[in-house]
């Protein structure tokens, strides 16, 4: 009798919970390990932050995926870049005012995941760049401030001009000796990060600067 009562309690609780919950997402793409510490470091004047989650599935599905792939100049990796994986976006506040954003992406590297975190101003200009995770024998060279500071001041428009030999991206040199693929992956991940920011939060502000990209950029 007691068992029947316990099973009924379990079933009722499960049913209630299943009906009450309604929003559906998948595993998180890349979120900050320690948002308070990281945000304070990049935005010392901030007084708080607000976290939002977006998925490509929710924001446009297969059509949006194709659009982002076209702008990126490369197809998504099924393990690292599935449609239903939520991306975390941190809106940085000073009082009630928005002073910037922090957002990260997972990018396939030669030895595993690269987690590329960008801090931008409200217009999407990079104010901070760092790897939360970098699996590479030359990780120290990639994490070196002399390299990461080269991304500061760049915008999505600069990445859309990736193929321009006189462009700002061409001026960034690979810091490694033998990890050229990880350098290319860093550029790809940073561009993807900015495209997703533009799509999810900036209302496609940089759409006008997109003139098409070569399809062999990351080959």
């Amino acid at each position: 009798m007691e068992n029947k009562s316990q099973i009924s309690t379990i079933l009722i609780a499960t049913l209630i919970l299943c009906f009450v919950c309604s929003v559906s997402f998948a595993a998180i793409g890349c979120e900050l390990n320690d948002p308070d510490r990281d945000i304070q470091k990049i935005f010392p004047q901030s007084t708080g932050y607000k976290t939002d989650y977006f998925t490509i599935q929710e924001k446009g599905g297969e059509k949006l995926k194709k659009e982002v792939e076209e702008k990126l100049g490369d197809a998504f990796d099924p393990i690292y870049e599935s449609l239903d994986v939520p991306y975390s976006y941190y809106t940085i506040l000073k009082g009630k005012d928005v002073i910037g954003y922090v957002h990260g992406v997972n990018q396939k590297g030669t030895y595993g995941t690269l987690q590329i975190i960008l801090a931008t101003d409200p217009d999407g200009k990079i104010m901070g760049f760092y790897y939360q995770k970098v699996s590479s024998p030359e990780a120290l060279k990639f994490r070196d401030k002399a390299f990461t500071d080269k991304f500061i001041g760049l915008t999505l428009e600069d990445f859309y001009k990736y193929g321009d030999p006189n462009g700002k991206i061409a001026a960034i040199k690979d810091p490694s000796q033998k990890s050229q693929e990880d350098f290319k992956a860093t550029i790809r991940g940073t561009k993807k990060n900015l495209i997703l920011l533009d799509t999810f939060l900036l209302n496609k502000k940089h759409e006008g600067s997109y003139k098409g990209v070569r399809n062999d950029e990351y080959k």
């Binding site: 919970l17 009450v20 998180i28 989650y53």
Partner: peptide, 24 residues
């Protein structure tokens, strides 16, 4: 525990929640 669960779920779905994730 049951009350705790229901309370947490109720809070999670209230208008206050800015964003949430649900995984199966």
């Amino acid at each position: 525990p049951l009350l705790t669960i229901l309370m947490l779920i109720s809070i999670s779905n209230a208008a206050l929640a800015s964003d949430s994730l649900f995984y199966k």
